[in-house]
Design a protein around this nucleic acid. Structure first.
Lengths: 144, 144
DNA sequence: GGGTACATTGACGTTTACGTAAACGTCAAA
DNA sequence: TTTGACGTTTACGTAAACGTCAATGTACCC
């Protein structure tokens, strides 16, 4: 476990391009240190990118991911801000629960679809088997 | 429960624009009947749209959603096609399970963030309470 | 039969999330 | 010291997923 990372380190580790990583920085989702112009990513930066990609897998736009990342930072200033944050958290939670529902529904559907597929396959295979037998029979009955 | 729907029926029901619905048709995700040029959506079409929107909530691109919808149709022709489909189903399942993992991780994070928020809030509120008391004290001690 | 509401098909614009290329800087090894 | 291998910024391109008109058609209601 290293202390710092280059941009291509992270790109390779997570399977994304350096262009993407720089783009995330442009959009304010990352802010790595610099060493003579070069970006230097700390472990915290790496974690941040990891969280970012988790958001991406959930299909969220970068702007939403950004607002979630800002929750992690916890720059809670005033009461209003904190109340707004807890409210936002509640919204996220609802969205996530909805996504879970959707996933479970889809998984159930996939089960049914796969079952249908397999029964079709079994039918076809048994059909092919007999076809094969017929072919062999033909060959056996009519040797060249 | 109606038999057929107009495009605006569905738009209102699902909270999307008719433009979007037509766009989905352009991309081959829907294919409603026509009655004198007007689109007429059957209950099956409505279900299809419902599934489509479920895919959208999961953040999938329309092309992926389309391929999943085609699984539902079950136009399984040859053995190769069926095997390809079951393979695809397995991939989807993996993706969905990954998404579930991500969701659970994020939900856990949100719990922690919210707890931190609430403790901060409690601290601030108690601070305000004492501030309030001080203010009242001042008022009480120095009546105008 | 004229208005209103809803439908249609283009066509162009917009936002998001990068890809791609150009032109240039830098640093360690040969 | 030169040569890669990596890094930088700037700029333009692009694909997806619609939004936003515009021009037109049609169906029903009074």
């Amino acid at each position: 476990m290293q202390e710092t990372y280059t941009i291509s380190d992270l790109g390779k580790e997570f399977g994304i391009t350096t262009r993407a990583i720089r783009f995330y920085e442009d959009k304010g989702l990352l802010s790595p240190a610099r060493q003579g112009g070069r970006r230097t990513y700390s472990r915290a930066d790496r974690t941040r990118l990891k969280l970012l990609l988790r958001g991406k897998r959930l299909g969220w736009p970068l702007e939403e991911i950004k607002s979630v990342l800002e929750m992690y930072d916890g720059e809670q200033g005033e009461v209003q801000q904190l109340q707004y944050t807890t409210q936002k958290i509640q919204q996220r939670r609802q969205q996530l629960l909805q996504q879970k529902k959707d996933i479970d529904a889809l998984l159930a559907d996939l089960d049914r679809i796969q079952a249908r597929c397999e029964s079709h396959l079994a039918a076809l295979m048994s059909g092919n088997e007999s076809q094969k037998l017929v072919t062999e029979k033909l060959v056996t009955e009519r040797p060249s």
